[in-house]
Amino acid sequence: MPGSIQSLERAAAVLRLLAGGERRLGLSDVASSLGLAKGTTHGILRTLQQEGFVEQEPVSGKYQLGAELLRLGNSYLDVHELRARALVWTDDLARSSGEAAYLGVLHQHGVLIVHHVFRPDDGRQVLEVGAMQPLHSTALGKVLSAFDPVAHNEVAEGELAALTARTVTGSAEFESVLELTRSRGWGSDLEETWDGVASVAAPVYDRRRMPVGAVGVTGAVERLCDADGIRSRLVAAVRDCARAVSRDLGAGRF
């Protein structure tokens, strides 16, 4: 039976101690409560502090739980917050691309559309917010599967149903599609979900650089593609938009 790692056990004990009872403790309080040497305790506290799990009060020098720990427990980004942040950028994406823009997140083994901007022409369109799209065939779904390990697990457990003649249904082939998506930073769907329809999408990151969603455009394959696949200016517009939303979420320049 593999043994547990002593320093992790000790770090967990420190966090539990700071979480209960008196919330601010000095180094010697922590050391004596846990029966550890001061030097060892200091090393643990310093490491936890570097990770943001513990904070030291500048004046008293006492330790308390850090903001990062609170964020971990409350990590999920509200999808309505995501929409509010994306609004300006997705409007501009629809305008500059001339196509409908979508923002999707992982939800119950599929892609939940949380925001939809109409294609900027006079055609009749229906708002698709709240609709679900498949993970394995759409550009949004492939991007989520490629960048979000949870989405990857979900898609790997499910069946890769053939929605059109072009849907990738073999798991080895699908993995290489995800590998390509990861290496170039964007995903595409060339009539793999709906005949005659193509899409392109890129990942959106939050302030901790976690993939929280995907943004992209969808439209007639004749408009989105040229002989080489998705038109490069559309790829650029989608990736610009994804970067802008990520920056708005605090992901920093990249």
């Binding site: 501009d92 038109r231 200016r233 610009d240």
Partner: peptide, 9 residues
């Protein structure tokens, strides 16, 4: 590439 890249502005 067949497209001429256009500025997003």
């Amino acid at each position: 590439m067949t497209d001429t890249p256009t500025s997003s502005h």
